[in-house]
């Protein structure tokens, strides 16, 4: 049943270009798709380990810059008279490096903060994103600063038997993003259903117990952060090669907030949540733009957000799943802590 819905959804998305010709809408769908990939990666952390990364866009932006610089080449001076000269490499190499470098950054951030976690992780991620933004803004020799990296080449993929194909059109990029999104979805799905996913769940539900059955907290959380950051980096790379221009604004806090909203409205901890939430908040601007001033649009987003969470507090997908699922034993509030053996029995 679930996989039937998934397959139908993919088929539906795949058929969109057949009947939708409007380039403006296609563009909106492509960028929405890219952000949905980012939101899925955020959900891996937020929904499955309970850790809120409020600097998630940093990994996305790092992926975008790494990929762009790899394919554009650069020539920068370092202290002590060293120089790094890099000749352009194919964008697809940039895509891979984006994943690797973003994943590495996820590792560092995770390592730094998971020993204490919670609010600490939130703060470290926000600060990290801000630091990276400042580097992108000020290391002009490498990043062009506010002048932006321009003319980023489109992705070229080698198709067996067909030679190289450079993905320039919206149609091609649409299918590229769809393909990466499907792979990401499958990857995360496999991940959360594996022993590793159970370790994450266990940690979120009852950490003391999880530790006692042998789950290594730091390792589990760090690995989740690495994978999450790597996927965000992949999304950033797609973004760079599709938009073909990148400036430090990509690191803006509002971009992280957008992803968080996508995850929370769609339903954190549900695989399809970020897709549903992402479609709503990715496409909302398209429909609001003709009828509202920009300021009013923001108010409308807020209204939609509050409305959804008011009616479906756990997010759209989990709430609906609960409503349509066959009635199951209701979870009583966890009162295991509330009762104390002191009250129950003394020396019998």
């Amino acid at each position: 049943m679930k996989s039937a819905i998934a397959i139908l959804t993919v088929v539906a998305f795949a058929s969109v270009p057949l009947w939708l010709r409007d380039p403006y809408l296609m563009n909106a769908l492509i960028t929405t798709g890219i952000f949905i990939i980012g939101a899925m990666s955020l959900n891996l952390l937020l929904g499955f380990t309970g850790q809120l990364s409020l600097g998630h866009i940093a990994f996305f932006g790092i992926g975008a810059y790494v990929s762009a610089l790899t394919s554009l080449g650069f020539d920068v001076g370092l202290p002590f008279g060293f120089r790094i000269v890099h000749d352009p490499w194919p964008p697809i190499v940039g895509f891979v490096l984006a994943i690797v470098v973003a994943g590495l950054c996820g590792y560092l951030v995770g390592l730094l903060s998971f020993r204490v976690r919670g609010a600490y992780f939130v703060i470290v991620t926000i600060s990290f994103a801000e630091v990276v933004r400042l580097v992108a803004l000020n290391w002009v020799e490498l990043t062009q600063g506010p002048l932006a990296l321009t003319n980023i080449p489109s992705i070229t993929i080698g198709l067996p038997g067909l030679g190289d194909l450079t993905l320039r059109t919206k149609l091609q990029n649409y299918y590229l993003v769809l393909a990466v999104a499907v792979v990401t979805y499958l990857l995360i799905s496999r991940l959360v259903h594996s022993h590793f996913g159970r370790a994450m769940r266990g940690l979120m539900e009852n950490e003391t117990l999880a530790v006692s059955v042998g789950i290594d907290v730091t390792k589990t959380l760090t690995l989740a952060a690495v994978i999450s950051a790597g996927i965000a980096g992949a999304a950033g790379s797609l973004y760079a090669h599709y938009i073909r221009i990148i400036d430090p604004e990509v690191f803006a806090f509002i971009n992280t907030v957008t992803m968080v909203i996508m995850v929370i409205t769609g339903g954190k901890g549900s695989l399809a949540g970020p897709v549903v939430g992402g479609m709503i908040f990715g496409l909302l601007p398209v429909f609001l733009r003709p009828i509202m001033a920009p300021e009013a649009q923001w108010i409308a987003y807020g209204g939609v957000l509050i409305g959804i969470l008011f009616v479906l507090p756990r997010g759209i997908v989990p709430s609906l799943a609960l409503r349509f699922a066959k009635p199951r034993k209701r979870i009583e509030p966890v009162t295991a802590v509330a009762f104390s053996e002191r009250d129950v029995k003394e020396h019998a």
């Binding site: 022993h195 159970r198 370790a199 769940r201 266990g202 539900e205 009852n206 003391t208 117990l209 999880a210 006692s212 059955v213 789950i215 979870i331 966890v334 295991a336 802590v337 104390s340 053996e341």
Partner: peptide
């Protein structure tokens, strides 16, 4: 544990898988 002994939002069977 004296107090907390299960993963409450998982089935008994899934508890054991964890």
């Amino acid at each position: 544990f004296q107090r907390t002994s299960v993963f409450p939002n998982d089935t008994v069977y899934d508890n054991l898988l964890v």
